[in-house]
């Protein structure tokens, strides 16, 4: 068995682990690091539930090998809170009804974060495109798109307030 000692940067913390190379990031996150917020619905790259961010880009953890991710910044849903405060996307999802069963939610929130970090003012169509790999069976996506739009508006308002404060 090809087992390697790897150091992974997950949610800003360094973890050194002995990992068989055939273990996917999904398995390591859930089973070794007990970060069970990352979900799995097919393990074949077809549902998007296991989406996490690597250096800010959304990837499917079920198709990623940890050995290829040393030195990269891995962000899971557990790492999205800052100082115990939920991210605006998390609050918006909770408030706008974007969460029903919640199983697709971590992946959707992270895909949305990747979008907003790249494009802080996306159109509704751009949001839908960015989330097109994250299947949801509960919401019909509508309140999910509403929530992302709400988060966009909040972030913009906050920036405006900050700018006004400065001027």
């Amino acid at each position: 068995m090809d087992v390697r000692l790897l150091t992974l940067n997950v949610n800003g913390e360094q973890h050194t682990l002995a990992v068989p190379v055939c273990k996917t990031l999904l398995e390591v996150l859930r089973e070794d690091l007990h970060l069970t917020g990352t979900k799995h619905g097919c393990e074949l790259g077809e549902c998007g539930a296991c989406t996490v961010l690597v250096d800010g880009e959304p990837i499917l953890s079920c198709l990623a090998l940890p050995i290829e991710l040393e030195g990269r910044e891995i962000l899971t849903i557990e790492g999205l809170m800052e100082g115990g405060r939920p991210h605006p996307l998390q609050i918006a999802f909770a408030e706008m009804g974007a969460v029903q069963c919640g199983y697709c939610t971590p992946g959707v929130v992270l895909s949305a974060k990747a979008l907003l970090d790249r494009n802080p003012m996306p159109t509704r169509q751009e949001i839908a495109e960015a989330l097109s790999g994250n299947l949801c069976r509960c919401t019909g996506y509508i309140q999910i798109l509403d929530a992302v739009e709400r988060a966009v508006a909040w972030v913009r308002e906050r920036r405006l307030i900050l700018e006004e404060g400065r001027s």
């Binding site: 002995a18 068989p20 055939c22 999904l26």
Partner: peptide, 23 residues
Amino acid sequence: MSRRVLHDGGAMLRLPPFRYFAP
């Protein structure tokens, strides 16, 4: 028991073992 290292806690579709090179 050496295989125990493979996983602990989960249930899912997995990759078969292989050796890995990254030239």
